[in-house]
Design a protein around this nucleic acid. Structure first.
Lengths: 329, 329
DNA sequence: CTGTTAGCGCCTTCAC
DNA sequence: GTGAAGGCGCTAACAG
């Protein structure tokens, strides 16, 4: 900018004004400045210097955590991102996908991201990346959980929703089962009968398990005998083999509550009769699944709005049960 | 940082070293500094100041153009983004989704993005956003086109691929038709018989049309009589109504070349017999579509790698024809 | 309408 | 192992 100023025979401030307050500069001077800038290959104020000066970046940080690599394979995560992007585009904020998922450096990368606020995608209570986001003292909005004093949490009441759909799918069943998301960041695939929700590190998974348990108990089913198949990812192939495994362990399984429509569809493919899903995605409609409807897109938008200082609903009650033939009697 | 230094009784440099070259500072001093920093709520060096000093942001800018709002509804665009994110995460670069799509300010926002390089998603020759990216003199990699001296273009040879799939789907047909993507940024929905590819602003659409025409001509079909249904978006509902419209205009249509698997599936839904798609997505497999296979994920990765100074294939020949029953004789 | 001063927070260079 | 100066490029505030 100094160079441009010199070459144009004006002060740096005039150049600055030319870009930031065009009207404050005479048309003549402005033209001259722009001409010189073009000839010098100067494209306008440096964004970093500007951010430094302003103390703001007009950028929202999105932390997808260890998911990053395959978050894009999860249609719900993509919808969430779409909601964020929409709000940010409207407000003129960029969305920075913070490069996490590679291990130890994750926290540093979060701290070192040039952003004004963070939105953190569902993670575990102990995720260092979350702690890193908080340590920066910038606003943090967490989707799904964990909940923490001083930060906003946006997401549905998973326990209540799981109870509701559980009552539907487990009704009259003698051997219900659950297809679950991972319980911690190790993402082990395993079967645990009567899995205790308390020990689950992902709040979303924890609450849904607790809700399914609530439903089972209310229906007089002994939770300690309910097999819970924990899948590493939201992948159909893996879910099918898990379903087979569950059926080997307990061939009498007559109801399956799944934490996603994808998992539910996979269970159906393996012959499960009464099945419930989660999200009310296209898959749910195609497979006529009873499911929990929620809009990740709207939740994404709410997260972005809140993180950027606006106000938006927490979406705690923004879900409803969709009854379809997959749980018809 | 100055505050921390003062409070810890050291110079700012020592604080800087504590974060950037921990080993260069005695363990004792380092501990002291970190302690004071924590008590003062100092989270580490300011990212903007750092970027200013270094002259680099370690961030890749992704320009989705007017698509932004619904790019996330396009599975291929999402795969592309996934490829970019993967490479960037690995290299420790953030991905900044530049807030475009709202009109006049788009170009300014691109210029003002704090990034080291750009990847631009397929756009038109005249997109001001593209010009803006170039004007910054930062590296620009364009996916799909337009091609420009001084920038890298990554994408398949759409004309050759369209010709190949066109020869397949149009073979033996008497009244072929095309389901096309938009021809310019106005995104009008219309039917144009024998649409001249030359006037099409999107290079990808242009090349595919030209390829279909090549095939038609080679098969002895009069291109000027081939109806081209131009769809505003890659949406099934719109594609179905367009297909109905085409069939009203020319009930004899006996082959449809579509620019995406989604459009092709919609054509099938409306009763089209011989149909070809594009991308070899899940939809193509489900509908047994003859299609052009390409990996947007790999192309995304290649774009990111190239933009960040590495070398990657242009993917010009990274496509192949997948023959399935949708074009069986 | 245009210019001067000063400082945003950091780190490279060079001294000790 | 630690510190002092200087400047990355920009703009708010205040002249003129």
């Amino acid at each position: 900018m100094t160079d441009v100023a010199r070459a144009a025979g004006v002060s740096p401030m005039t150049v600055s004004y030319t870009y930031n307050r065009p009207q404050r500069v005479s048309a003549e001077t402005r033209a001259k400045v722009l001409e010189v800038a073009a000839s010098l290959g100067y494209a306008g104020p440096d964004p970093s210097a500007r951010s430094l000066r302003y103390g703001a970046t007009r950028t929202l940080g999105l932390v997808l955590g260890e998911h990053l690599t395959y978050a894009f394979d999860d249609p719900q995560a993509v919808q969430f991102l779409a909601g964020i992007a929409e709000v940010c585009a409207e407000k003129g904020y960029g969305v920075l996908i913070v490069p996490t998922g590679t291990g130890d450096e994750d926290a540093d990368r979060v701290v070192g991201a040039a952003v004004d606020a963070y939105v953190v995608w569902t993670t575990t209570d102990d995720d260092p990346v979350l702690a890193a986001a908080f340590s920066t003292r910038r606003p943090v909005v967490v989707h799904g959980g964990p909940e923490r004093a001083g930060s906003v949490m946006i997401g549905v009441d998973n326990r209540a929703a799981a109870r509701a759909v559980g009552l539907e799918v487990f009704a009259g069943a003698r051997h219900p089962a659950v297809l679950s998301f991972p319980i911690d960041r190790d993402r082990e695939t395993f079967v645990g009968a009567g899995l205790d929700p308390t020990g689950v590190a992902y709040p979303v998974t924890r609450d849904r398990l607790a809700g399914y348990r609530d439903a089972a108990v209310e229906l007089g089913v002994d939770w300690s005998r309910v097999p819970v198949g924990v899948c590493r990812t939201n992948d159909a192939g893996e879910a099918r083999s898990m379903m087979r495994r569950l059926l080997e362990l307990e061939p009498g399984i007559d109801a399956v509550a799944a934490m996603s429509d994808q998992l539910a569809a996979a269970a159906q493919d393996e012959g499960a009769r009464r099945v419930s899903g989660w999200d009310d995605s296209d898959v749910a409609r195609q497979h006529d699944l009873t499911t929990v409807a929620q809009s990740l897109r709207e939740q994404g938008a709410a997260c972005a709005t809140t993180a950027l200082g606006g106000s938006a609903p927490t979406h705690r009650d923004a879900w409803h049960l969709v009854r379809r033939s997959s749980t018809a009697h």
